[in-house]
Simulated assay, not measured.
Amino acid sequence: MNKGRLYLIPVPLGQTPAAAVLPAPVRACAQRLRNFVAENAKSARAFLKSLPSDWPLQEIEIHELNDHTAASELPRLLAPLLAGRDLGLISEAGCPAVADPGAALVALAHREAIQVIPLVGPSSILLALMGSGLGGQCFTFHGYLPSATQEREKRLRELEKQSRQEQSTQIFIETPYRNRQMLESLFRTCAPNTRICVATDLTLDSEQIRTRPVAEWQRQPLPEISRRPTVFLLQG
């Protein structure tokens, strides 16, 4: 029996309509599939309903894969593929398997010689880098930094040093309700000439991408980004 194909299906960031950020072939692929693995089943169904899917939602099978999923559960998520049916992998927002638990399923699919097909769509990390004006030839994404102030600022000093040594852009995110604390740490810790980009609400109508040296940021009120999805970038 031929194996199915694993499609990596991006979804919009926030409430942006799918047609505004996803090419027609990507939407058509998601519409025709009946089997999915998603970080959150509820939001995945909302996405499929917005397309809308070619199938009644009650006939679509969605299994969850998130940070609480044990490694021992991954093989059963591949069952549709091993039975010859195509499967879609959906993240909570943006591109699956990028800063996302779906990467574990993709790795297992490769071990099972299953064809993996990534589809085009929005990635907040790459969109922030593209819009920042910072170096795009060499960059590193670090995910979340420590939440405690002292540890966070120690890590920021390390990233700034790394950026100078490697001539690289350092990219990271924060839980939205701690965005203000991240800004305060950045402007308190980094050198005056270090450039900081704050990219907020990417692809939404309220999108803002601002890049300035720390010295210039310090002369202005902190931007209002509390509880708004934001990507931070620095280059020393």
Rank of each mutant, 00 (worst) to 15 (best):
M1T: 15
M1A: 15
R5G: 03
R5L: 06
I9Y: 09
P10V: 10
A20G: 00
A20H: 09
P23A: 07
V26I: 07
V26G: 07
R27N: 03
Q31L: 03
K42A: 14
S50V: 10
D54S: 10
Q58E: 14
E59C: 11
I60A: 08
H63Q: 15
D67G: 04
P75E: 10
R76M: 10
L78R: 05
L81I: 12
L81F: 09
L81Y: 12
G84M: 12
S91A: 13
P96N: 08
A103F: 05
A103S: 13
A104R: 14
L105V: 11
V106T: 05
H110Q: 11
V116W: 04
I117R: 06
P118L: 11
A128I: 07
S132A: 13
G135A: 10
H142F: 04
G143H: 02
G143K: 02
R152Y: 02
R155E: 15
L156P: 06
L156W: 02
Q162M: 14
S163L: 09
S163V: 12
R164V: 07
S168C: 09
I173D: 00
T175F: 04
T175N: 11
T175S: 14
Y177E: 02
N179C: 06
Q181I: 01
S185I: 02
L186K: 06
I196K: 00
T200I: 01
T200L: 01
D201I: 06
E207D: 09
Q208M: 12
R212H: 13
P221A: 12
I225A: 05
Q235V: 08
Q235I: 05
G236C: 09
